[in-house]
Nucleic acid binder design. Structure first.
Lengths: 211, 211
DNA sequence: TAGATTGTTAATCGATTAACAATC
DNA sequence: TAGATTGTTAATCGATTAACAATC
């Protein structure tokens, strides 16, 4: 199981994809699959899928394949989706609101418990039943709650300072939408960067290579 | 220059990062840098940075380093940011609106010229000065405009059908926020997937590995 | 049993890093 | 010139693919 060896990030990033396709099979009431079938659906080699899964243990049965429900649950457990890590949103602007409304946090391993913004006009409004608080209330909030993760939807200019103060308050992970890289001086902090701007530039490159 | 060999996607994905850090240097009025200095700022090896840049030509000067402004412009050109590819948004829900308001399309190689949604309540409203049109008007719009790229902020259920009809209308690239993989039967289509859900699950894994 | 498909080892491929000659 | 730093080749490392024995 996890923590045993050291699984490469490349493997981990493929797991949500497997999870997604297994969910589709579930919805079609297909209860059995094989690395070959998955490879055709997902567009990877069967060999890679077997290698990936075997990082975590033997979920299949020789001569048979994989049980869809079982494999789905196992991958969910590996990804920690059976837990709900407490998370807060910092920055309730356009992007923060959209992310909050859009994501199914509970089924992705998180529970959103607080939303914060510096703009007094937003404070008091609610998103998904959670009232937006003033950033100044962060200290008090952490006194009563222990959110482990912060979702950063704040301008790049304030991101370094705010992320540092969140670390000081005890945050251990960031889902970072700011156009900057959060660097952890402390190594016990995990970061998942979503660089939309970088992604758009990559698309620009791909488009420019067409024809 | 581009198109010559075959540049790996791993290299391309680092270019926006270089671009970002060079922009910072520009803003600090620093006009000269070196692979060593960049490597410390960005957190990659100097060797890799030199390798990456040399995929596209020698932008540096031995014994001196790189001219910040020049390198910034060159990377911008490689990424095609000196062009503005016409793009449309499909789906003006929470996420679509946020992306539209949030992104600086012009400086990322694109020009947003149309927004479409199926919801009649949204049609007629404007985002960033662009009026939301009904999806039924897509044909007419393509008759007058030739958008090359579509930004998909639509539910996964309708994504396959809509992306196919957009391909039929002449779209050559997708920035896909739907929770599904756009697969191009036709190989002349480029796709950049933004799987927020996958990213969140990856964070869940990282958090679960802490301590 | 025969057929199928896994789990796993070995081979290949590609990407990163190291080293150094070229040269500003 | 001496020092610095690139451009580039060679060495290393890691990830993907192929092959096959194990076994259901």
């Amino acid at each position: 199981m996890p923590n045993s060896k050291e699984i490469s990030l490349a493997v981990i990033r493929r797991l949500p994809r497997y999870y997604r396709f297994l969910d589709e099979l579930k919805q079609q009431n297909i209860y059995k699959t094989s690395s070959k079938e998955l490879s055709e659906k997902i567009g990877l080699t069967a060999s890679q899928i077997r290698q990936d899964l075997n990082c975590f243990g033997g979920f299949g049965q020789q001569g048979y394949g994989y049980n869809v429900d079982e494999l789905y649950d196992e991958i969910g457990k590996i990804l920690g989706l059976d837990q709900q890590t407490e998370a807060i949103l910092i920055g309730a602007g356009n992007l923060g609101r959209a992310v909050t409304n859009h994501m199914d946090f509970v089924n992705r391993g998180f529970k959103l418990t607080g939303i914060f913004d510096q703009n007094p006009e937003l404070v008091g409004q609610s998103i998904k039943g959670i009232e937006i608080m003033n950033t100044s209330q962060l200290g008090a909030f952490f006194y009563n709650n222990k959110p482990k993760v912060a979702i950063l939807c704040i301008p790049k200019t304030v991101a370094p300072a705010i992320s540092q103060s969140l670390i000081d308050l005890g945050v251990k992970g960031f889902w970072n939408f700011s156009h900057c890289d959060i660097v952890s001086t402390n190594s016990n902090i995990v970061v998942e960067n979503v660089h939309l701007s970088d992604s758009l530039m990559t698309l620009s490159y791909k488009v420019s290579q067409l024809k």
